[in-house]
Simulated scan of single mutants.
Amino acid sequence: MKQKYPQFKHKQEGNTIIFEGTLQVKPEFPVYTISIIYRGSLSPIVKVLNPQLVENPPHVYKSEDNKLCLYHPKNFKWTKEKFIAKEILEWTAGWLYFYEVWLETGVWYGPEAHEDFEKLDYE
């Protein structure tokens, strides 16, 4: 994480690691502050802290305070051996891009079928 995203800092709370930092996917888009809670083999929790998302954005878990929906657990199995920087942050950057386009157009051009996230290359 430190090599690929040095702007992200972390703190450990028991077996949980909380990463917080900024992402800007295009110069004309805002700088977003992101929180990622790493919980070992449990799916990471990804939230946008700032700027606040609009009410009822697409592809979030509303019951969990707008946790970003980056993949469907039936199509991608998170394990503690995977890397937050490779999997989760790259998908988060893609989500932010599609969110900004959705704000401008009202259309979510990102993958609708969650398995399509595995096919995208955000590098």
Rank of each mutant, 00 (worst) to 15 (best):
M1W: 07
K2H: 07
K4V: 13
F8V: 05
K9C: 10
K9S: 14
K11Q: 15
Q12W: 08
I17F: 12
F19C: 04
E20L: 09
E20T: 15
G21Q: 08
T22E: 15
L23N: 12
Q24H: 09
K26H: 14
E28P: 05
P30I: 05
Y32Q: 05
S35R: 15
S35L: 15
S35C: 15
S35Q: 15
I37M: 13
R39V: 08
R39T: 13
G40M: 10
L42I: 14
L42Q: 15
S43H: 14
L49C: 09
N50T: 13
P51I: 08
Q52C: 14
Q52Y: 04
Q52W: 01
L53G: 08
V54C: 08
P57S: 07
P57D: 09
P58C: 07
V60K: 08
V60M: 08
K62S: 11
S63T: 13
S63A: 13
S63H: 08
E64T: 08
E64C: 04
E64W: 06
E64V: 10
D65Y: 03
D65E: 11
K67G: 02
K67Q: 12
K67D: 02
C69W: 07
L70V: 04
L70R: 05
Y71N: 04
H72R: 03
H72P: 00
P73A: 06
K74G: 07
K74V: 10
N75K: 07
F76W: 09
W78M: 10
T79R: 05
K80P: 00
E81A: 05
E81M: 02
K82E: 10
K82F: 02
A85K: 08
K86P: 00
K86D: 12
I88A: 00
I88C: 00
I88P: 00
L89S: 02
L89A: 03
T92W: 01
T92L: 01
G94Y: 02
W95P: 00
L96Y: 04
Y97C: 01
Y97L: 09
F98E: 04
F98L: 01
F98C: 06
Y99P: 00
Y99F: 10
E100M: 02
E100S: 02
E104I: 04
T105H: 05
T105I: 04
G106T: 02
V107Y: 03
Y109D: 03
Y109W: 01
G110Y: 02
G110W: 03
H114W: 04
H114K: 04
D116C: 03
F117I: 13
D121C: 07
D121R: 03
